[in-house]
Design a protein around this nucleic acid. Structure first.
Length: 911
RNA sequence: GCCCGAGUGGCGGAAUGGUAGACGCGAUGGACUCAAAAUCCAUUGUCCCUUAAAGACGUGCCGGUUCGAGUCCGGCCUCGGGCACCA
């Protein structure tokens, strides 16, 4: 009886769906485990074989945890707002919701074929009003909160208001507040709200007609679409993520994430400890204090000039009248440049002198103040003290404009380049002379603080997140403008639904598409016209899965306290500085206000690698329609042409299929080698234009979902990127057939009730031990190898005993659930194998009774000796020393010591 | 430039400091077959050699620690990823 994967897979997929086999409820009697995949954006192209890699891994883990007795939450949904659907809408007039719904249906059918154990009753879609109600709700909470630095957490803004009313806060006095207009009060509170509106320099992308967050821009181009991005001052909604910088950094240590992703987040947060220092400045006869930030307070004696960012407000105030024209010209030129241009012109040093001077607070020296692009307005104070001897950027600037360079470290050579390293002994530095740099930094900080010149300060690179997008297909802001004052919609009005509009383009006067909506008002006042960015909907979706149909709360108390946080999160590294920061921020905010009980959303994170494409090539002889096999192509002048990988198997071209592929190849001729046409290949990104996209549906058709699952895992470690290469898929397919043949021969079912031998039990228990250990370590490829060995051994022993095979089916079920389900039922079970228990591992049954020790002399392998497993290292040594008499082993030399590595090896050191 | 990660057969990849190359693919030979497919068996790192035995050499390069290093340490090289005027 043959393994008929088609019948088996469709049968059990239907059974699982009909019985809602993976439906899960809160069940305090069982321990919980929450396994989550990063939900996909349903693109029009559908899934290729790379997408399910992480899903398969997490599904194996989820199924394993169920067998281990956990109540497993394993949901799936769609990140459904986004650019491609909107751009398609702009081109075709098709409502993005229509496209999105179609794409979701396609994704769903593709996912279903692979046999995932999702609880589909918990599906969420970010574009569903019932879902985005809670995105809007969270925004309102952020609008209605401020970050209290004393409590070090977010608090309701009403607490700040009462504090201002009674005692004032920072520069706001109770009197000021009492007499302030509504507009003025709103402006004051905007400075503190977690979700606030403010003018900043934003990444404006003309090509997309919207602003973008920092993580949506790479190399000066938009990540989506690759359009140029420029800096523009605009008033936008923002999230005060920077208030959480320290907490986001500190709790990274407690997370079970890969070092590389934690490091990426640390770099993105960019904590830097330094000093803020006040320099007095003179512009004509006006004096003005200017604050700078430095991490090298020890180098103040080497300051020879100061630099302001072109965008800094200080520039206008510090420009002398006779320099004004030139400075303004420079500032304008800098503003005109796109981010892209600034990057491409890296290291070309530009700048202009302001005509004013700063006074070094430590030695009273007068130093010129310049403006240059290399100083950023958004970091620190937008002004720096320049120490050319010990900072490479200051050095380049000083060289270009002929400014003095004063070395501060004994023996350093600054004739060719600056000395940036923080080691050596200080000189030319007054009271710091003779100190080591590290001590001097601290001494200088102490001095500066003691003399009221400045204070210690920690700066972060992490910026607040720009939260407005000038687009249609996103969550509308629950905000309206009453007399021009941003006012939150009452919670009872949520969700605020996206209005229907006639065209998805920006309005003729350059406003976002929502400006086209009829009657986009609340209570007679205009509603906010921008929408939220892509990361809004994905920031708390993991919480919604816990309680997806709750109309009263994002997540109910009971569900939250049971499921708490995600135990295992699987997804790609591309979200390291976007989604994974925003989600952590969002979660910490909700935690501060008591809406969730865990401070961190994702306990353990596994980043699956990318599956690249493996493109195939044919070689056409120039000017002909004749194609030459790869090995012979050097004998002709040829052009390399991508050929659809689905026409190629094991690098051999199906020439008939090739002729039918395209009309122009219908009469193609071939020059073969050994009767075959061999294709060339290269690893490239999987994409339509390279004809290297492999659809999982095709693999399911020809090999089955179980083979696909096994093969994707067998390809190598989950975390590693690798090209998809169908070569080798026969191996795992063969394994499944062999497994099947333990149960069936050509006449049918052959499983017997006989008692298992010690040998057979050893094979079984070795596998149980190995699988348990490997799955916990997320090492699935080695488990599959162990499985292959076990099946080969059982096959060789002709073992068809139920006592052995039944646990084998359970062991197989996380990997090849369809086959396991079929066999499980044939073994007489009524229930799904989902409810089986993971077989108990008995190490004694897996153990060998004797061990073959390799014996080495001075590390050189000489012979082996077989000793009982139970022998202690001392007994092993005694046994070996007992053999010492056999002199030829030691060549007349004496044994110095015998090293016994238990269970492993014996090494005899001779001299 | 800075910060991570990785370099192992023809290929994908295994190896708590302990017989490197598990497992799979591919290849070669064989069995079964009229034949093919499927299946099964054997061989498969390199060199030396007619073959075998036995040996020598082998985990990017150079050095070190150790009885013993793919693994640990120091210095390079190459590739991949992230950040990039962050003072």
């Amino acid at each position: 009886m043959d393994y008929d994967f088609k019948a088996i897979e469709s049968k059990w997929q239907a059974y699982w769906a009909a019985n809602k086999e993976f439906k899960v409820e809160t069940d305090p009697s069982k321990p919980k485990f929450y396994v989550l995949d990063m939900f996909p954006y349903p693109s029009g192209a559908g899934l290729h074989v790379g997408h399910p890699l992480g899903y398969i891994a997490s599904d194996i883990f989820a199924r394993y945890k169920r067998l281990k007795g956990f109540n497993v939450l394993h949901p799936m949904g769609y990140d459904a707002f986004g650019l491609p659907a909107e751009q398609y809408a702009i081109q075709t007039g098709q409502h993005p919701e229509v496209t999105t719904t179609q794409n979701i249906a396609r994704y769903r059918s593709q996912l279903d074929r692979i046999g995932f154990s999702y609880d589909w009753d918990r599906e969420v879609r970010t574009c569903d009003p019932a879902f985005y109600k809670w995105t809007q709700w969270a925004f309102l909470k952020m609008f209605d909160s401020w970050y209290d630095p004393d409590a070090d957490k977010a608090r309701p803004i009403s607490e700040l208001v009462s504090r201002i009313e009674s005692e004032g806060y920072e520069d706001v006095t109770p009197e000021m507040w009492a007499s302030a207009s509504e507009k003025r009060k709103s402006d004051i509170l905007m400075r503190y709200r977690i979700a606030y509106q403010g003018e900043t320099s934003v990444n404006w992308c003309e090509g997309l007609g919207t602003v973008l967050a920092n993580d949506e821009v790479k190399d000066g181009l938009s990540v989506r679409g690759g359009y140029p991005v420029e800096q523009k001052k605009m008033t936008q909604w923002q999230l005060r993520v920077s208030a959480y910088a320290e907490r986001l950094l500190a709790s990274l240590d407690s997370l079970d994430w890969s070092d590389s992703i934690k490091e990426m987040q640390r770099n993105w947060i960019g904590r830097s400890e330094g000093t803020e220092m006040v320099f007095d400045t003179v512009c004509g006869d006006r004096h003005m204090p200017v604050t700078i930030f430095t991490t090298r307070a020890d180098t103040v004696f080497g300051v020879t000039f100061m630099v302001l960012a072109p965008e800094s407000e200080l520039v206008a105030q510090l420009t002398a009248d006779d320099r004004r024209a030139e400075v303004e010209e420079y500032v304008k030129a800098a503003a005109r440049k796109t981010e892209r241009e600034r990057i491409s012109e890296t290291r070309t040093v530009t700048g202009v002198f302001t005509g004013s001077y700063g006074i070094n607070p430590l030695n009273g020296k007068k130093i010129p103040i310049w403006v240059s692009e290399y100083v950023l307005a958004g970091y620190g104070t937008g002004a720096i003290m320049a120490v050319p001897a010990h900072d490479s950027r200051d050095y380049a600037f000083a060289r270009k404009f002929g400014l003095p360079i004063i070395p501060l470290i004994e023996g350093c050579d600054v004739s060719e380049q600056s000395f940036d390293a923080k080691d050596g002994i200080m000189c030319n530095s007054g009271f710091l002379d003779g100190m080591a740099v590290k001590d001097a930094i601290e001494a200088a900080k102490d001095y500066v603080e003691a003399h009221g010149i400045g204070r210690r300060k920690v700066n972060y690179r992490l910026r607040d997140a720009i939260f407005s997008r000038q687009r249609y297909w996103g969550e509308p802001f629950p905000i309206y403008y009453k007399d021009g004052v941003p006012t939150p919609l009452p919670e009872s009005e949520l969700p605020l639904r996206l209005p229907e509009i006639s065209s998805y383009k920006p309005s003729p006067d350059g406003e976002p598409p929502l400006a086209r909506a009829k009657d986009w008002t609340y209570d007679g006042w205009p509603l906010e016209k921008s929408t939220m960015p892509g990361f809004a909907g994905s920031s708390a979706y993991y919480l919604r899965y816990m309680d997806p149909r709750n109309d009263e709360a994002l997540v109910g108390r009971e569900a939250d306290e049971y499921w708490r946080s995600v135990d295992l999160y699987v997804g790609g590294t591309e979200h390291a500085t976007g989604h994974l920061i925003y989600s952590r921020f969002w979660n910490k905010f909700l935690y501060d206000l008591g809406y969730v009980c865990e401070d961190e959303p994702f306990r353990k994170l596994v980043n699956q690698g990318m599956i690249q494409g493996r493109s195939s090539f044919v070689y056409r002889i120039v000017g002909t329609n004749t194609f030459v096999s790869c090995g012979l192509k050097d004998k002709y002048e040829t052009t390399e042409i991508h050929v659809d990988v689905n026409l190629v198997r094991n690098d051999r071209l199906d020439t008939e299929a090739f002729r039918k592929w395209r009309p122009e190849y219908a009469d193609a001729e071939f020059v073969l080698e050994n009767g075959e046409y061999v294709c060339g290949w290269a690893v490239e990104k999987m994409s339509k234009s390279m004809y290297n996209v492999v659809n999982p549906d095709d693999i399911c058709d020809s090999y089955g979902a179980d083979t696909l699952r096994l093969y994707e895992m067998f390809l190598g470690p989950v975390e590693q990127s690798k090209p998809w290469d169908t070569k080798g898929i026969d191996g795992v397919n063969r394994f499944l057939k062999k497994f099947w043949r333990l149960f069936f021969d050509k006449d049918g079912w052959i499983v017997t009730d006989g008692k298992a031998t010690a040998q057979e039990l050893k094979v079984l228990h070795k596998l149980i031990g190995k699988e348990q250990e490997d799955i916990e370590n997320f090492s699935f490829n080695t488990t599959i190898s162990a499985f292959m060995i076990a099946v080969n051994e059982l096959g060789a022993m002709k073992c068809s005993k139920k006592e052995v095979l039944e646990p084998m089916v359970v062991l197989l079920s996380p990997f090849a659930p369809h086959m396991a389900e079929e066999l499980w039922h044939r073994l007489g079970h009524e229930d799904s194998v989902t409810y089986a228990s993971f077989p108990e591992y008995v190490p004694a049954l897996a153990a060998d009774d004797s061990v073959t020790y390799p014996v080495q002399f001075n590390g050189k392998m000489r012979f082996t000796v077989e000793l009982p497993k139970s022998a202690s290292p001392q007994e092993v040594e005694a046994a070996v020393r007992g053999m010492e008499q056999t002199a030829r082993w030691t060549d007349g030399r004496n044994i110095v010591k015998v090293i016994v590595v238990p269970g492993r090896i014996i090494n005899i050191v001779v001299k």
